[in-house]
């Protein structure tokens, strides 16, 4: 698999590097070697992607020394690369990891990163394309692809809620005079609306609680909580939920909303007017209920100018 974005490696490097193009060729070659998945023993693959022996590729640009071959020196960097990016996905995906189990999760992460190396200067965005990858390549998560996709979306929404942009909050005064038929509100960029066929929020909370207990148990002298901490969190049972992932006072929250309220938010997020959004929710959006919903959402600071 060719990593998306990275251009083909050169068949051979010039003996002397005279230009920036020569420098780029060497950097491409090394990046291809680093992005290629390690073997199960965490060694460099024996063959480079074009079929050459990896040892020959390494020797073509890296000097050996009295202790390490060219291949071994390249391998130090390859391991550092893979451990760093895998650790990052692990940290950001406790729910997905629990759902798939260590082995399948590890295989998924390696396949994902082999296809989608980071395209951002920050590791924060490393998992941004994981939900899409899960959907595009269901073999890594089958037969629970839909659930895995839901959990991955939920976990990505947490990254967005943690440090996504906050625009100036709209207050009642900002639209006191605006007629509902004209008024269009936007949701804060850090807010994500998610509808799932499983209570994914409860599942991820249970996993995090289990992991926290596990962390405590590993530090504790007596092994009291150990049995609980090693328990597998049961997979969630089907049931439609509507969750808003957001932050308040710099802390992360998941708020369940009823389906009609969710519909209103969805419509507003899609750019419909306030009147259209409420109408789309149908008879369930009774005026008192709508007033209550908006009072809460305003208080949470979810709306900003479009």
């Amino acid at each position: 698999m060719t990593p998306i974005g990275l251009k083909s490696p050169p068949a051979r490097l010039p003996r002397r590097q005279r230009t920036t193009a020569d420098l780029r060729a060497m950097q491409r070659l090394m990046a291809h070697a680093l992005y290629q998945p390690l073997t199960p023993a965490d060694d460099l693959a024996p063959r480079f992607r074009d079929g050459r022996a990896m040892a020959d590729v390494a020797a073509s640009f890296i000097k050996p020394n009295d202790r390490l071959s060219s291949l071994e020196r390249l391998q130090i960097y390859a391991r550092c690369y893979w451990y760093r990016v895998i650790d990052c996905v692990y940290d950001d995906s406790p729910g997905l990891r629990a759902l798939l189990g260590e082995q399948r999760f590890s295989a998924l992460v390696r396949a994902y990163l082999a296809k989608y190396p980071s395209r951002s200067f920050t590791l924060r965005n490393l998992c941004s394309r994981l939900p899409q990858f899960i959907r595009d390549e269901p073999r890594w998560t089958a037969p629970r692809t839909a659930l895995a996709h839901a959990v991955a979306r939920f976990e990505w929404a947490q990254t967005v809620a943690f440090d996504g942009e906050a625009r100036p909050v709209l207050t009642r005064d900002d639209f006191a005079d605006a007629p509902p038929a004209k008024l269009r509100l936007a949701l804060q960029p850090y807010v994500t609306l998610l509808a799932f066929d499983w209570p994914v929020d409860d599942y991820v909370i249970a996993v995090k609680q289990r992991d926290a207990l596990r962390g405590e148990a590993s530090h504790a002298v007596d092994h009291g909580p150990r049995a609980a901490s090693h328990r597998r969190v049961p997979w969630p049972r089907r049931g439609r939920v509507h969750v808003v992932v957001h932050r308040y006072d710099h802390r992360l929250f998941y708020k369940r909303v009823e389906s009609a309220a969710f519909r209103v938010l969805e419509q507003l997020a899609a750019g419909r007017t306030l009147a259209q959004a409420i109408a789309a929710a149908g008879a369930r959006a009774k005026p008192d209920r709508v007033r209550e919903w908006f009072a809460t959402w305003m208080e949470l600071g979810w709306f900003c100018r479009r």
Partner: peptide
């Protein structure tokens, strides 16, 4: 390189 990031500090030639 090519807009992909290793997130490592790799040595220069």
């Amino acid at each position: 390189v090519d807009g992909t990031y290793t997130h490592d500090l790799l040595p220069m030639p």
